[in-house]
Each structure stands twice: as C-alpha cells, then as structure tokens.
C-alpha cells in the first residue's frame, strides 16, 4: 500500500497543474468566445487577397 504515498501526492500535483492550466486559459481569453474560432480551420488562409 506504500504506493499510495507516491500516487496520492502525484494526483494532488496533477490537480493543481490542471487548475493552474485552466486558470491560465481563462485569463488568456480562451473561453470568452466559443463560436467564432470554430470556423477558422474551415477557411482558406489567404494573407493578401486581390484588391
């Protein structure tokens, strides 16, 4: 059962990492707009369209 002494702190570290990552994502506007970016991959990327 000694393995839990390693695994449980590990789970806590992962938990903290997960919370930190999600907080970072929220603060960097990843959840502010959920509709527009969904279309981005569907469009052809043309940097300089003809005038």
């Amino acid at each position: 059962m000694n393995i839990i002494l390693l695994l449980i702190p590990l789970s806590i570290v992962l938990l903290a990492a997960g919370v930190y990552a999600l907080f970072w994502a929220i603060d960097h506007a990843q959840f502010d707009d959920l509709d527009t970016p969904a279309l981005a991959p569907l469009t052809d990327d043309r940097r300089d369209p003809p005038p």
């Binding site: 919370v19 999600l22 959840f31």
Partner: peptide, 18 residues
Amino acid sequence: ENRDALKRLIVAGLGTMQ
C-alpha cells in the same frame, strides 16, 4: 464575471472529482 464564475466552477469540479 464570466471568467470568475468559470474559475470557481473549475475549482469545484476538479475538487469534487478528487
């Protein structure tokens, strides 16, 4: 407000799982 609520939700969700 939106970001704040989302953060609390995440803390509560992950905390609940554990």
